[in-house]
Design a protein around this nucleic acid. Structure first.
Lengths: 345, 345
DNA sequence: CCTTAGCACTCTGACGCGGAGAGTGCCAGT
DNA sequence: ACTGGCACTCTCCGCGTCAGAGTGCTAAGG
């Protein structure tokens, strides 16, 4: 893999033109069309030489001897990394975003679901998001609810998250012990999930054996809410866009793609792998999971204040309109950051 | 559309054989293969005559002049309605079901998600379910939570359902008024969602104007939980099975199918339309929505005691192994009924 | 030394053709 | 009422052909 500094300006321009033409048409692009439309002022023969060099360097591929060129993953990567400008949204897109964020914001979870659908409509790919974990959120309720043979642990966060878990009732736990435990839990209301979890662990260590178990269970519910481990959910929306006729996926690839989107656990780990500070792009084989899909992921974190609280983005074919996808993802992530910051303020 | 009593026993047998062969192979089936394998003791010429008659009656179709026959929706319908016996599960399927329902049952919602996935694995189609509404469930908690500029209405049901909604705080509602309202709500704990809703409406009529609005909002949360209207969620699992290579769907049909599966609202109404007492089958154009998919739905209700509380089933191509799908859906619905009844008892 | 015109070459995709195979529909005979 | 026989009709497959697109190379020119 050649260092991209090696690419002269004309080679870069040719690569750029090939990527854009291929993304637009979906067909292998020949030297003639580049010479005519890219405005480089050189003949197709020169373009051919450049293309051959770009192929040698691994940026372009050849379906067969006498077809045009197609970008490789490395080609897309170079294209994305050297994009001269941030993409601009079309007016209709800008308006759609504005309208979407106009309505009163009550529940971040709901906003996120809506935003994922918005992104899928804006880009015609599938939208996805990882909602915030709870660690720095304040608990406004922490309850143990007696459900007969079982108990429900219920935690409500400051910004509207509700986590519940139903657990087996520890042996011999009578109503008085339950009430006593619940009093202790009420004392945690107002502190953050992370703090509460730590305090619960300390309280458990100091408590009698039946209360001990119970407090550990509650701590575990908070742990799950914090890190989103077991109940880890990734919000997916507009996946049907991926089945669109214009996407070149083979049936089997499409099946795998859908299957993975259904497995939240796996999606979560993919999204964590690709996380970055700003808009980030993962192309085809750059990640083992996306390689199996022949797909790319564009994501951006959204923040509350300075802290990253979640991730939102899209999945689409490697032959993706990266400029527009990145612009859409960036715009939506920015609005989400505003909302998250406001809700936290 | 001919009344199916008109079909003689041999025509029925031929139709039966055609459906089974077509479901198995996916290819149009000719008279010869039926004559050989169906054991009717007549020649292919006779089968041909019967097939021509069945086509005339609308049960079979013809991709082109000299291809074999393919069942129409009406053909499948007759086949399903005259199935002589209930399908038997294969041992592996029986075992998978047994294992799945072995673990301790804590949360019906979780069980339902698991059951949908189980069904999708058993049948290789997509599983789907409508979870129980709450109307006859008892409220164990009904709370108003102060979240600063907003309020959260939180309802917890006897069997572990949790419904929340964040609403704008009515103007001028101070902490004392909130506490007063919450005391009233506590009085509802122990009665059913349906009763509580009715009582709330009466209380609202009697209350002062600021409390009035608040109580109506709470009543509405219960209404939504009861009927599952807005937050209506349909559990879908294993949708990726539908993208399997062996399914003959065109790309566009597949896209529509996925798109509808994402729209919970619409799925809900489809499932309500096809609801029945026992296992029910909706084939292709029998329902406008499934017609657009060229798909069939097999569902069965599950009950708590005598009352139907939810629905579970599968969606697959019209060329579906109905016998096996019906057996799987029936078996899972029965186990769910046991669990629901037990949780209610 | 870089660029370009020219040209031979290669590969795909569309088209048409013909034969094999599958299956039908119908008729006449039992 | 059933069946054997048969002509007929389609599809599917392999084949050869042809046009078109695009390449790679070479030799000439700035």
């Amino acid at each position: 893999m050649a260092d991209r500094a090696e690419l002269g300006p004309r080679k870069a321009a040719v690569l750029h033109a090939v990527v854009e033409a291929y993304v637009r048409t979906g067909e292998a692009v020949g030297s003639e069309s580049i010479a005519e439309h890219a405005g480089l002022g050189v003949s197709s023969a020169t373009i051919r030489n450049e293309m051959a060099a770009l192929e040698e360097l691994g940026y372009l591929g050849h379906p067969h001897t006498s077809a045009g060129r197609i970008p490789t993953d490395a080609g897309y990567r170079h294209y994305v990394d050297t994009l001269p400008a941030r993409g601009r949204l079309r007016d209709a897109q800008r308006r759609a975003i504005a309208i979407h964020f106009e309505e009163a914001i009550l529940d971040l979870e709901e906003v996120l679901k809506g935003s994922v659908l918005l992104l899928s409509r804006l880009t015609q790919y599938a939208g996805l998001a990882v909602p915030p974990g709870a660690s720095e959120e304040q608990l406004v309720r922490l309850e143990l609810i007696d459900m007969g043979p079982t108990l429900m642990v219920l935690a409500v966060g400051q910004h509207g998250r509700v986590d519940k878990q139903i657990v087996d009732r520890p042996e011999e736990l009578g109503a008085p012990a339950l009430a006593a435990a619940e009093r202790k839990l009420r004392a945690l209301q107002g502190s953050t999930y992370a703090d509460s979890q730590a305090r619960l662990l300390r309280m458990a260590a100091a408590a009698g054996s039946d209360e001990h178990d119970l407090l550990l269970i509650v701590a575990d519910v908070l742990r799950v809410a914090t890190r989103g481990e077991r109940a880890a959910h990734v919000v997916v929306g507009g996946a049907s866009n991926l089945a669109d006729e214009t996407q070149a996926w083979r049936r089997e690839t499409l099946r795998r793609l859908f299957a993975t989107l259904e497995r939240e656990q796996e999606m979560m780990s993919v999204l964590q792998d690709v996380a970055a500070d700003d808009v980030s792009v993962t192309i085809g084989a750059e990640h083992p999971t996306t390689a199996a899909w022949e797909a790319s992921i564009v994501t951006a974190p959204f923040r509350s204040g300075d802290a990253t609280v979640g991730t939102i983005g899209v999945v689409g074919p490697t032959r993706m309109d990266y400029l527009s996808a990145m612009a859409s993802v960036r715009a939506v992530a920015e609005r989400l950051s505003e909302i998250a910051t406001e809700l936290d303020g």
